[in-house]
Design a protein around this nucleic acid. Structure first.
Lengths: 187, 187
DNA sequence: GCGCTAAAAGCAAATAATTTGCTTTTATGT
DNA sequence: ACATAAAAGCAAATTATTTGCTTTTAGCGC
């Protein structure tokens, strides 16, 4: 989407993107999802609706774009001393954040977009967080669970239940992590 | 959504629902997702757009409603003689169906709707299929994996990867099932 | 069966959204 | 500085959505 091309002639590009993103966040914080429209966002951002349509295509793509930015992790997983407790702490926080109203809406926005790249990015944000935990474990000389096994055993069940059923409770998350630690100790 | 109330005065209800659903399926088979609009569906179904708006609210809810119907299982999982092979056969078919273009679009439609009940229903369709496999295992006197453990260990990873990354390949699905069979043999 | 009733559907005007052709602005490379 | 091409503005045209009101219909009591 935002490829690495060097900025070409003509763009107020970055400025508009920033104000539109901010406008979306402001409006989402205030109004119901169904009340947030492109013309409203345009007015709030001080741009023309056609600018938004031409840059993003439609409301869903814009909402997805904003949601991906907001889902980008802003901190490194806390270091609690071991792979197991790092993963447990991370998973608990992840489940809580994603289960929250705003979390669920952001995930929904990302998945609703036609362009699947947002979902892929989010998945990678998560994978990278786990890789950080794994790399620390490796530096400590620990035996630790394969990253893809954690994706399957911890991340996927949490996300599945948030999306398709009730959010998993803390005990469930703890069980998932424990099982993952026990089952596949291999890199 | 479609509650079990006995039909009240006035509804051509069922007839309209059927023709609109059929129209949606016809159009989805022909056109790109972004080209399918409420007025088009209305014309194809021989109803007025306002009828659709009043019954379903918007296009997304209608698409979700249709997708849920299409995701409803139409057969019982095949009986291959044991819990393990039943689950393996079912998981392979499930992964294949859901990974397909139409499968992915239906899931997306279900999740994109404001009304989360469709996702919940789909999750239950899946759970019920696994329960059928589990009940057969119980009748045979087998030891078998808890249904929720299968949801976490097999269904969730398949769905997560379909939604967020590349679809899982056959070998991956096989590994998930094998691990699930090995890890939690209990009720 | 016959009307009564209320839910659902039709119709059409009003509103809101999206698209589009054309003009203007602006960041970059020369 | 100037030329250039990408991005943004503007406004008209199109398309989608909402809404008030009328008509049709299925179930209900008689």
């Amino acid at each position: 989407m935002a490829t690495k091309e060097s900025p070409r002639p003509g763009g107020r590009s970055a400025r508009v993107q920033a104000s539109v993103h901010k406008a979306v966040q402001t409006l989402l914080a205030t109004l119901e999802r169904t009340e947030v429209t492109v013309p409203l966002i345009a007015a709030e951002a001080g741009v023309t609706p056609s600018t938004i349509y031409r840059r993003w295509g439609d409301l869903q793509e814009l909402l997805a774009d904003v949601a991906v930015e907001r889902l980008r992790p802003d901190m490194v997983p806390v270091d609690t001393g071991s792979f197991g407790s790092d993963l447990m702490a991370w998973a608990e926080q992840y489940a809580e954040e994603m289960s929250s109203g705003p979390g669920r809406e952001m995930i929904r926005d990302v998945l609703a977009a036609q362009d699947g790249s947002g979902a892929y990015q989010c998945c990678n944000f998560t994978r990278q967080q786990i890789e950080v935990i794994a790399e620390r474990a490796e530096e400590r000389g620990e035996v630790f669970t394969d990253v893809e096994a954690v994706m399957d055993g911890v991340v996927a069940p949490i996300m599945y239940r948030i999306l398709f059923g009730g959010a998993p409770d803390a005990a469930h998350v703890e069980r998932l992590v424990t099982a993952s630690l026990a089952s596949k100790p291999a890199p």
